[in-house]
Amino acid sequence: MSALSNAVAQVVTQAGETAGLDGDALKSANGASSAGFAYGLAAIGPGIGIGYLVGQAVQAIARQPESAGQVQTTMFLGIAFTEALALIGFVVFILLKFV
């Protein structure tokens, strides 16, 4: 992955040089491109995880509708923990993009 982001940074640097950007602008351009990567990669795992989790919860509820309340609470807890990764990715995105 670092090879890819290096390549992207190279492209950005070249484009910036042709456009005559100074160092700060180049830095934020690089930050923006890596921000996109950061969030995109951070979304993969939690996406799979939440999908699997909710699917299993639905199956459990379908098999035992009387335990739906408990399964739902546990499901929300699991989603909260799984989702945290994606949200940290989002925060990293914001930090890379705007700082």
């Binding site: 909260a80 923990f81 989702e83 945290a84 949200l87 940290i88 989002f90 925060v91 914001i94």
Partner: peptide, 13 residues
């Protein structure tokens, strides 16, 4: 940290 970031990032997003 995750408590704060979860709430904050969800709402900001």
């Amino acid at each position: 940290f995750s408590l704060a970031v979860r709430l904050f990032a969800n709402m900001l997003a």
